[in-house]
Design a protein around this nucleic acid. Sequence first.
DNA 1: CGGGCTTTTGAGCCAAATCAAAAATAGTGG
DNA 2: CCACTATTTTTGATTTGGCTCAAAAGCCCG
Lengths: 268, 268
Amino acid sequence: MPKDIMRDILPANNDRIADRFLVRSLICHLARGAALTAGDCEMLTQTALECQRAVPAHFDLIRVGEKPTHVKIVLDGWAIRYRSLSDGCRQILAFLLPGDVCADHGTVLSHMDHSVASLTPVRYTRIPQVRFDSIIATSPRLARAFRWAELVTVSIQREWTLNIGQRIGTARIAHLLYETVVRMRSRGLGGPGVWSFPPRQSEIAEAIGLTPVHVNRLLQQLRHEGLIEWHARELRVKDMTGLKERAMFDPAYLHGTGEAPIATYPFW
Amino acid sequence: MPKDIMRDILPANNDRIADRFLVRSLICHLARGAALTAGDCEMLTQTALECQRAVPAHFDLIRVGEKPTHVKIVLDGWAIRYRSLSDGCRQILAFLLPGDVCADHGTVLSHMDHSVASLTPVRYTRIPQVRFDSIIATSPRLARAFRWAELVTVSIQREWTLNIGQRIGTARIAHLLYETVVRMRSRGLGGPGVWSFPPRQSEIAEAIGLTPVHVNRLLQQLRHEGLIEWHARELRVKDMTGLKERAMFDPAYLHGTGEAPIATYPFW
DNA sequence: CGGGCTTTTGAGCCAAATCAAAAATAGTGG
DNA sequence: CCACTATTTTTGATTTGGCTCAAAAGCCCG
C-alpha cells in the first residue's frame, strides 16, 4: 500500500524512491543479521529490483518436486509455505512476509520438498542461483545476513512444531498472531497496534492444525477478552502484553527479530 | 552394541577397526549428500574420533540459551532435540540417531534456541567451530554433504509440523515409527524388520503432541492390526507396506534417505 | 441487487485428555 | 539370585476440547 501511494503522489522520475521502498522490508530484515554496508544494500537492491516479478493471489511461486533454480524473496504482499497430505489436508508451514526468503536450497537438493503460494497479490524477486552465489561470495556480510535469516526461519519452524504440539487452542492462535505481528513490526510494516492481516480464518486453521469453525470460536474468545479486534483483513491488537502472556510467548527463538524495529534504516 | 562386541572380540591393537565402526553411521549418512573421497572420510573420521566424548542417558549435550562453540554429532546412541513451554510442557522436536548433527549454527547466532539431550548413553564428537570450518573449507564435498544433511533435517522438521498438525492419532504414530525406521535403515543400523527403539511411550507422546495414555492405546491399535510389535526397547515392524500406508508416508521429503541403505560403504 | 465467499451460530458427536489405580518391567542392592 | 523399589505400561471411567454437519448471516464486488 505505501509504495502504491508513493507511486501515485510522486512524479514519474521519482520511481527510484518507490523502488527503494519496495526493498525496504528485505534490507530491514537482513540488517538484523549482519552489519550491512552501503555497498551491500546497493548491490542487493539493484539485483532485487532487476529480477522483480509479480503474481496474483493464490498463485504457486514454488511447487513441490520441481528443481530449485532461483532464490525467491517476497518484496510485497503475503505468501505461504505449505505441504499437503495424500488425503488432501494442507498444512501451512509458514507465513512469508515482505523480506522473507522463500527457499534457498541452492543446488544441493534436486527437488523442492514443499510449495510456496501467494496469499495476496505478491511482488517478489527471483534471483538466478549463480547470481545469488556471486553476491554471497562478494559480500561476507550479506552471506552472514542470509545465513542468519535462514537460521531464524528454521527456528520459527521448530517453534511452530512446539506451538501445534503443546499449546491449547487459544494460546496457539494467540502465539501465531503475536509472532506474526512482531515479525511485521521488526520490518517496519504496519503498526502501532494495527496491522494488515490478509489470511482467512480457514488459513489460520490450516496453520495451527485446527478446523475453521473452531478457529472462529477461539478468535471470539480472544475478542471478548479484549485482546484483539479483527475486521476487514485488519488486525488490531488492543493488549499486546495480554496477548503475549496468553501465547506464552518467549521472543528468544526469533534471535533479535523480537525487538523494536530499527529506527533509522541504513540508507534513507 | 556392535562396536562393544567388536571391542571385546578383537585384540586391543584392533581398536582402529572398532573406531571406524563408530563413525560408520555418520559417513554412511553424509555419503548420501555428496560423493565423498577416501581422503574426505579419512579426515572426518580422524577429527571425529579425536574429539570424541561420552555422556550417560538423560544428559544435556546442548542447552537452550548457551553460545554455540562446537559442532556436535551423535556417533552412537539416541538423543533428542527439544524445546519447552513456560508451563513445563516439553516438545520433542527430533530424534537424533547416530550420524545426526545436533546443531550447526556456526557463529552466526549468539545463543541456542533449543536443547539437545541424550536419551540413551551417547557417544558423540564435539568439533571446535574453527576446526569444523577448516574441514568445510578443505573439502567442498564434505561442505556439500553437511549442507545436504542440514537441509534434510529442516525438511524433516517441516514434516513433523505437518504430522502433528494434520494427521490423526494412529497415522501420526505410524509416521513417526516409519520415518525413524527408514532413517535407521539408511545408516545401516538394525533391521531387517527389527530395530532398537529406546524411547519410552511418554517420549513418543512428547514428540507427536499426544498424552502418554493415548499413545499407549494407539500403539495397541497398531499392534492388533498386525503392523508392529514392540517389546523391551525393540521395535519389530511386521508389515512395512501396511505401516507406510497407515502413515500416509511419502519419502520425497527425506531427499534420498528413504531408499535402501548403500550396500558397500565407501571405504571398508 | 444477486451470487460467491467468508464468518458466525447451533446441535450432536468423537478423539483425545484427565484422573486414578493395577499390572508388568526394569533396576538395585543385599 | 532374589527381594524390594521405581519406573513404565496397561486398563478403566469420566470429562472435554475440538470436529462434523448444516444452515444462517454478513460481506464484497461486479
